[in-house]
């Protein structure tokens, strides 16, 4: 899922100068799971903004709404025709889809979107995938060296790997230490002999925004073209 964290309140308040009608938009998907922008967090921010407005006489009309997934326009119909300021508690994707959906609204981010990761324990979320577009985790014991190694090394650890930890931080385990131990456990150490060639980064961010088309799901005329029909 996408990991995000709440922006500091003063930063959000700074973005709202000159606003009149404010809608705090939460998302029940990723940002709710990482406790950054779900229903509870959106309500808290909404109450905070309303309280600030009352104390400082800003005259804001603050409301809150939480949708199932802010990154899909189908769930954004309650926002139809909204012309005020939307504080998006969804990830950067959701915020942009909301802006696309309602061009008359002004969308401001209420969270900082960080990475694609997973919960490691209560309240701890760790990056697991860098979205490089060319997955090789079948060679690395299901552990991604691109996302989890500070140097994104593909063929073994660097000299900074000490006692299973990365030199970057004592809280960061060395991905290659984990990979080798995991391969050892599963008796697949032979995979270390596979030389992973230099990565083709064109499938990653280097080629600009990526577009994925699922031919099966294309509707109508576009699907005919794919079938070779006129």
């Amino acid at each position: 899922m996408i990991i995000a964290e709440r922006k500091p309140l003063p930063e959000v308040l700074g973005m709202l100068d000159g606003s009149n009608e404010i809608l705090v938009l939460g998302c029940r998907s990723c940002t709710a799971i990482c406790l950054a922008g779900g229903e509870k967090e959106s309500r808290a921010l909404s109450e905070a903004l309303a309280l600030h407005s009352e104390l400082k006489g800003k005259g804001w009309k603050v409301d809150t709404l939480t949708v199932e997934r802010a990154c899909e326009k189908e769930f954004l119909t309650p926002l139809n025709g909204f012309k005020g300021t939307v504080v998006s508690m969804a990830c950067g994707v959701g915020a942009q889809v909301v802006q696309d959906h309602g061009p008359e609204a002004m969308v401001v981010p209420g969270v900082n979107t960080s990475n694609m990761g997973a919960p490691e324990g209560m309240g701890v979320f760790v990056e697991k995938c860098a979205g490089c577009g060319d997955c090789i985790i079948h060679l690395t014991a299901g552990i991604c060296p691109i996302a989890r190694c500070a140097k994104s090394l593909l063929n073994g650890p660097c000299g900074g790997s000490q006692n299973g930890l990365c030199e970057v931080s004592k809280e960061t385990p060395c991905a290659w230490d984990q990979i080798i131990r995991s391969l050892e456990r599963s008796g697949r150490l032979d995979l270390l002999n596979v030389n992973i060639p230099p990565k083709d980064w064109r499938a990653s961010r280097n080629g600009g925004p990526r577009r994925v088309v699922n031919q099966e799901a294309l509707p109508g005329a576009a699907q005919n073209g794919w079938r070779g029909e006129p």
């Binding site: 509870k40 967090e41 309500r43 808290a44 909404s46 109450e47 905070a48 309303a50 309280l51 009352e54």
Partner: peptide, 10 residues
């Protein structure tokens, strides 16, 4: 919850 406390102030 946080929102409950903030609402109490309101």
């Amino acid at each position: 919850e946080q929102w409950e406390v903030l609402r109490s102030f309101r």
